[in-house]
């Protein structure tokens, strides 16, 4: 009757991951909101179905939840600092439930993670995943997550039929637009709607400019640095630029990397970054040349 994890479809395991994280969060009193994949209303789901669980965690409780999951047999697959330029999510892995991405904020509505979480939490509705009650954002919140997720992944927003369907309902779309300023997502939402130039001069402008128009990983990191509101944040990001994601390297190798392997990867990334910067400077030089 019991099955090896490989014989359980990933989307089924993703549903169990949602339920398992919810159970852990409830036990320790940490608030979470389930987003994307099986957590969203049917009309907003992607055709392929999610293969991992995405969960937005109360920023104040995220450390506690990570510790609790670790005691329950979850391994940390990647960390906040090494996962993405946004530093927004840590990925946990469980031998039976698969992957869960724990978000301490969502890119695009990241200016004030705590206030944003409170706003989304206040509008929450009760969903059910794998037979477990799981809080999910309001319908407007789910649409906004979809829009910002498409934006971050450089997928079309305006031509996405799921978005178009909501836009066709003025009342529903008005609720999405009303939520945008309350979660400080004006610039990202503007970028998603093709109105990024209205936000030129804001700290986030370049970040979404690079995201929407494409750019190297270095350019993405540098744009993220420009978007950081504090010097401390900027310094932190600059220090992270050359960091090797040792978790991912370990998963690629199937064992903990040696110091020499981390060193080689560090040099490789440094060279790649230098090449990207040289290319960018050359492009800029060519543009300026008469």
């Amino acid at each position: 009757m019991s099955a090896a994890p490989d014989l359980v479809p990933r989307r089924v395991r993703a549903a169990f991951a949602h339920a398992a994280v919810q159970q852990a969060a409830t036990r320790i009193g940490v608030r979470v909101l389930h987003i994307k994949g099986v957590a969203v209303d049917d009309d907003l789901r992607s055709r392929g179905g999610a293969t991992d669980a995405d969960i937005l965690v109360d920023p104040e409780g995220v450390g506690l939840l990570l510790a609790e999951l670790t005691t329950l047999g979850w391994d940390r697959y990647s960390d906040f600092l090494t996962g993405s330029p946004f530093g927004h999510a840590a990925t946990m892995h469980h031998p039976h439930w698969g992957y869960a991405d724990l978000h301490r904020f969502f890119p695009g509505m990241h200016q004030d993670p705590q206030a944003t979480f409170e706003e989304l939490w206040a509008g929450r509705q009760q969903g059910e995943i794998a037979g477990f009650p799981c809080p999910v954002p309001s319908a407007a919140g789910q649409v906004l997550v979809l829009v910002l997720n498409n934006l971050r992944n450089r997928r079309a927003v305006l031509t996405d039929p799921r978005v178009a369907q909501v836009q066709a309902e003025p009342k529903a779309w008005a609720q999405v637009e009303a939520l945008v300023p309350r979660v400080h997502a004006d610039v990202a939402f503007g970028a998603a709607m093709g109105r990024l130039e209205e936000h030129r001069g804001t700290r986030e402008y370049w970040m979404w400019k690079v995201t929407t128009e494409g750019g190297s990983r270095s350019a993405e990191w540098l744009a993220r640095v420009r978007a950081e509101p504090t010097l401390r944040g900027r310094a932190g990001l600059l220090l992270r630029v050359p960091l090797v994601n040792t978790e991912v390297l370990e998963h690629q190798l199937g064992r903990p990397p040696t110091r020499a392997e981390v060193g080689r990867e560090f040099v490789h990334r440094g060279r790649q970054g230098a090449r990207e910067l040289r290319s960018a400077l050359a492009r800029r030089w060519r543009r300026r040349a008469p």
Binding site: A3, V8, Q23, L72, H94
Partner: peptide, 18 residues
């Protein structure tokens, strides 16, 4: 029908008549 005893597992798979 997939049944998962949380938090540890494993998954029980009931197919067809089960």
């Amino acid at each position: 029908v997939y049944l998962a005893p949380l938090p540890d597992g494993p998954v029980a798979v009931l197919s067809g008549a089960s």
